[in-house]
Write a protein that binds this DNA or RNA. Structure first.
Lengths: 196, 196
DNA sequence: GGTCAAGAGTACAGATCGGTACACTTTGTG
DNA sequence: CACAAAGTGTACCGATCTGTACTCTTGACC
């Protein structure tokens, strides 16, 4: 298969970028550990930045599918009649992620940390990723005005990001549960009706 | 002065690390922009990791002094009779920081993103930094049990970190105000009495 | 079986990396 | 003035970095 080779390369790169960061991971090491020859690598991606970009795009897709499907399943199983079931489930899913052995924080937060310049295309892409998640969250909120839904989505994203960062830097693995409790308190004080 | 040379070196290194990250900033560039000769640099710090560590230690001191003094002043000026004056002021101070032109996110979050390995001394130091801030916040909470105060401090730190990361990755500069509103809602639902 | 694209393997270029060696200069002090 | 500490300037080391060139091999398809 043609795709699987490329995918395997991207998977390997993602793993290495996660473990050692983007700058600290050399092209040679990606080549060596993926088994894909350097010639082929540079046929797929013109340079390292394009590889990083492609890795983030794959991660965006991959994480998106995993997360949204987990949210649906957890929502059905754990919060069948809960008014904020989907929103609650997001924190459960993040908690699962945090407790997994492949947790190295959020790739996009890490990327914007390494490519700190706001103008850098990779930083811009990371911002766009967060924007898309904000819109996804927004889609799980209803019964309030547009402006209110936007605001609530930003609040919940802030809680999720806070939980992820907290878990990554300090190693506190219960931060998703903490953020979940906070969200619940906030929702109970809003007039929102929320889809489950 | 002996100290000022070292300080100037550390300040220059901090600026470069902020703008371009730790790995992407070469020793040569720190040398060139600081004006301090390489020989002297390596007399102060045995290697790059020690330089990074020293930069973070300086930043810890520097930010700590700035932040705590801002909190005291803002608390007095803006929340003279507010029950949660100090806690409120923390978010105002972070907002000021976010709006400044020297905002590149939290150095310690960024450091733990680049030195992703939990065992790495720099990651450990970043975690310790967060722990100390958690204790500072805890010192601004009273009227609740020890366990409850610990939990509240962790919650507030999560909100602050979430605001900082959100502002850095997406460029949303109003995230501190958002986090502040969330904290207020949470405090109003707790039984805490808080020192101002 | 012949053809041709895709990939492997590798050598290498040019730059930069962290770090060292060493000779020279400045500066403070008795 | 003498002397020692501290700092400068620079050349250089070996390693590693991104990226390119070129040959050899494999395998699919006609």
């Amino acid at each position: 298969m043609a795709g699987s080779r490329k995918e395997h390369l991207l998977e390997t790169a993602l793993k290495l970028f996660n473990q050692h960061g983007f700058h600290a991971t050399g092209i040679d090491r990606v080549q060596a550990e993926s088994g894909v020859s350097k010639t082929t690598m540079y046929k797929y991606f013109r340079n390292k930045d394009e590889l990083i970009r492609a890795v983030l795009e794959m991660r965006h897709e991959q994480f998106g599918k995993w997360f949204t499907s987990r949210v649906i399943k957890i929502s059905r199983e754990s919060y069948p009649d809960h008014p904020y079931g989907k929103l609650m489930s997001m924190f459960d899913a993040v908690s699962e992620w945090i407790h997994s052995d492949t947790f190295f924080g959020c790739n996009f937060i890490n990327a914007s940390a390494e490519f700190s310049d706001f103008q850098h295309p990779i930083h811009v892409y990371a911002a766009q990723h967060k924007l898309e998640w904000s819109e996804y969250i927004r889609g799980c909120v209803s019964g309030v005005s547009e402006a209110e839904a936007d605001e609530m989505a930003k609040e919940i994203l802030l809680l999720l990001d806070g939980a992820i960062v907290s878990a990554h830097t300090t190693g506190l693995k219960d931060s998703a549960e903490r953020a979940q409790r906070m969200m619940l308190l906030i929702l109970q004080n809003s007039t929102a009706e929320v889809l489950d």
